[in-house]
């Protein structure tokens, strides 16, 4: 089987088992709703600026991701299917399969947060430059997922998984978070697409560097 086809098979396996239980998707959606509601309670009738809203947007995405993205490897360990996966697929195939699945999860998260934000902050959360917003969300999700996947692989082999995951991820993701918050604020302020080109370069560089590093190091984490 070619590696592309086996990668697709790994993604399909994850999507199928996800659709059977809907564990991650349900938890993710509830988490987004809870977090946005908490922000609404905190803000009351204050009028948030675009910087605050852009920051809050990615805070919700970050913590939602931290509650669900580690499942990708932890569930394999819990179900005892790690060995089988090691037998049938090469580490690179597993890594890229999981990366694509995590990217899909992150993207669905951003879609959920965007819809909720547009509904509840209808007067403040107006995306004025759609192109900046879409590119930021796409590149940001890719970078987010690539860092989250390798950390998830590390955490799955440790003992205290739940608490360790955000602790390990935050220092790695901080560059990405600052950049996407910056770019999202630009999209809300209605700046021209050219104003965010520097941010896009950073996001692309981050994604490529992180994916290349993870690809090279994944073997060591994956094999027992």
């Amino acid at each position: 089987m070619s590696s592309l086809r086996s990668t697709v098979a790994v993604i399909r396996k994850d999507v199928q088992s996800e659709l059977r239980t809907r564990y991650a998707l349900n938890a993710l959606l509830m988490f987004v709703v809870t977090a946005v509601a908490t922000i609404l309670f905190a803000l009351r009738s204050d009028q948030p600026t675009s910087t605050v809203l852009a920051g809050m947007y990615w805070v919700v995405v970050f913590f939602t991701a931290m509650s669900s993205l580690s499942r990708i490897f932890v569930s394999e360990e819990e179900r005892g299917t790690t060995m089988t996966l090691q037998l049938v697929a090469s580490p690179a195939v597993v890594y890229f399969g999981k990366l694509v699945f995590n990217t899909l999860l992150t993207l669905s998260m951003t879609v959920a947060v965007t819809i909720l934000y547009t509904l509840v902050f209808s007067t403040f959360f107006v995306i004025q430059t759609v192109s900046i917003f879409v590119i930021t969300v796409l590149l940001g999700s890719l970078g987010f997922a690539s860092a989250a996947t390798i950390i998830a692989a590390i955490v799955a082999k440790a003992n205290t998984r739940g608490t360790l995951y955000p602790v390990l991820s935050f220092p790695i993701l901080i560059v990405l978070l600052i950049t996407v918050m910056n770019a999202t604020a630009k999209a809300l302020d209605g700046e021209a697409l050219s104003a965010a080109l520097g941010d896009f370069q950073v996001l692309t560089g981050y994604f490529l560097a992180m994916t290349a590093g993870s690809y090279l190091l994944f073997d060591y984490v994956w094999k027992d």
């Binding site: 950390i151 590390i154 440790a158 992180m210 590093g213 993870s214």
Partner: peptide, 8 residues
């Protein structure tokens, strides 16, 4: 694991 983390 800690070596991989420090390289990442």
């Amino acid at each position: 694991l800690s070596a991989v983390y420090s390289i990442i």
